[in-house]
Design a protein around this nucleic acid. Structure first.
Lengths: 210, 210
DNA sequence: ATCTCACTGTAACCCTTGTTACTGATAACA
DNA sequence: TGTTATCAGTAACAAGGGTTACAGTGAGAT
C-alpha cells in the first residue's frame, strides 16, 4: 500500500501527509461489480483510488440508473467528500468497474488535514473542480447528444478505463448505464457495426474507430 | 454595502473577515438581463451575491443554451470559484435574472483567506457541496423528466427566484432556457392552462398551483 | 384609428426513442 | 448430446418532442 500510495499520490502530497495517510487510512480491495457506496448510506470515509476504476451512478424514482462518470487512480470522489464534510447521506452509488484497491480516510482526519496541509487543501479543491467539470460533461452529453453519440462516447470511455478496446458487457448492462432499454442499444450497436465503428460478438464489443 | 454584506453573510463570517471583504471587494450592480460572466472568459474574481439573482447557463455547439440553476443571496458560483483556483476559463455563462448587486472578491484574497479563515474555508466547501447538489438536480431533471414536468419545475423555480407567482417572459425565452423550441413550450403551456395549473396572458404566466 | 410587429395558437409532419413481442444464436451444463 | 438460460436481432407500433408553416391577437407607434 505504501508503495502504491507514493506512486499515485507522491507527487501531490508531502512525505508527512503520506505518512499520516498510511497510518490512519485503511486499505480496501474490492472485486469488479461490487458496490462500494450505496445511495442513502452515511459515508464513513473518503476513498483515495490506488488501482482500478469506479463508476458513479445516479438513480431515478423507479430505481433505474444513469452513469455519471468514472473515477481512476489519483482521483477521489468529490461527491463523497462533500457528504463527509456535511455529514450527509450519499446521493450517488459507487460500483467497482474493475477490480479496485483504495485507501479509506476517516472523516475526522480529512477535516484536520484541510487546516494543516496546503497540498491536501489543493487536492480537495482540485477534486471538486474536476468533478464539477465531469458533471458539466455529463450534462452536455445527456442534454445535447443523441443516443448513438452517447453510446459511442460510452464505449470509448469504457475502453479507456479498462485499457482494452474490446469491451466485455451485454447490451442490457450498457442500457442500464445509459438509462435506456436493451432494444435501443442493440439497434444502435448494429448501426455502429454497419458503419464499421465497432465489431460485435456475444458479450463483447470491439471498438475499431478508437 | 457594509450593511447588506452583514445581512447576507454576517452569520457565516467573523467580523475580521467581513472587514477584509469590505476592504478588498468591489461593489457591483447590474440590471436584469446583463451578462456577468461569459463562456471562455478568464475570471477576475468571485462574486458574493447581496441582492437579486443570477442564472447559470451552459452552451451547446450551436450556441444554444441550457439553464443549469439559479443563484441567490448568500450564494456564490462554485464554478467560478473553481475557475479562479485553477486559473482556467469559464465553462459557463452567468446572466442577471433580476437586478442584482454583489461584491467581487479578487482571486489573490480568496486563496489567502482559504488558509487564514476556517469560516471562509467552510463557506467554500459548502458552496461546492450545494453546487454539486444543484448539478445533480439538473441532471435528474433532464435525464429523468419529460418536458412538461421540466417546464412546471422551471416556472416554480422562476416564481420563487422572483418572489412572484406571475412570471414575465415570452414563450421563446423559456424555450431558450430549457433548450427546446418555442412551439413546444406554447403547446405544453396550453396544456398546463387546460389542467388549471397556470393561466396565460401575453408576456405573462401566472402559476395557480404553486 | 389603424398599422405594424412581436407574441401566441395550432395543425401537420417527421425523427428519435421507448415498448412489446417474437425468433434465433450461443454457451453452459446436466 | 440434448436441454435450458441468457443474450442478440428485428419488426411493428406508440409517444414525445422538434420543425415548418400559417393564422390570429394584443399593444404600442404614427
Amino acid at each position: 500500500m505504501q508503495h502504491q500510495l507514493e506512486e499515485a499520490y507522491g507527487f501531490l502530497f508531502e512525505k508527512e501527509l503520506l505518512n499520516e495517510i498510511t497510518e490512519c487510512g485503511s486499505f480496501k480491495s474490492v472485486k469488479a461489480g461490487e458496490t462500494i457506496i450505496e445511495i442513502g448510506s452515511y459515508i464513513t470515509g473518503m476513498p483515495l483510488l490506488l488501482t482500478g476504476a469506479i463508476k458513479i451512478l445516479r438513480e431515478d424514482q423507479n430505481g433505474d440508473e444513469l452513469l455519471l462518470y468514472f473515477i481512476e487512480r489519483g482521483d477521489t470522489c468529490a461527491m463523497t467528500l462533500s457528504c463527509c464534510l456535511g455529514r450527509k447521506k450519499s446521493e450517488i452509488r459507487a460500483v467497482a468497474e474493475t477490480d479496485t484497491t483504495f485507501v479509506m480516510i476517516p472523516i475526522a482526519k480529512m477535516e484536520e488535514w484541510t487546516g494543516k496541509y496546503k497540498s491536501w487543501r489543493n487536492f480537495v479543491f482540485e477534486s471538486y473542480h474536476s468533478r464539477l467539470s465531469e458533471m458539466l460533461d455529463t450534462i452536455d452529453t445527456i442534454a445535447f447528444m443523441n443516443m448513438d453519440q452517447r453510446l459511442m462516447r460510452y464505449l470509448r470511455d469504457k475502453a479507456k478505463i479498462n485499457k482494452d478496446a474490446t469491451i466485455q458487457s451485454t447490451h442490457q448492462q450498457i442500457a442500464y448505464d445509459l438509462h435506456t432499454s436493451r432494444v435501443v442499444i442493440s439497434r444502435l450497436l448494429k448501426k455502429l457495426e454497419i458503419d464499421n465503428k465497432i465489431s460485435l460478438q456475444r458479450n463483447q464489443i470491439k471498438i475499431l474507430d478508437l
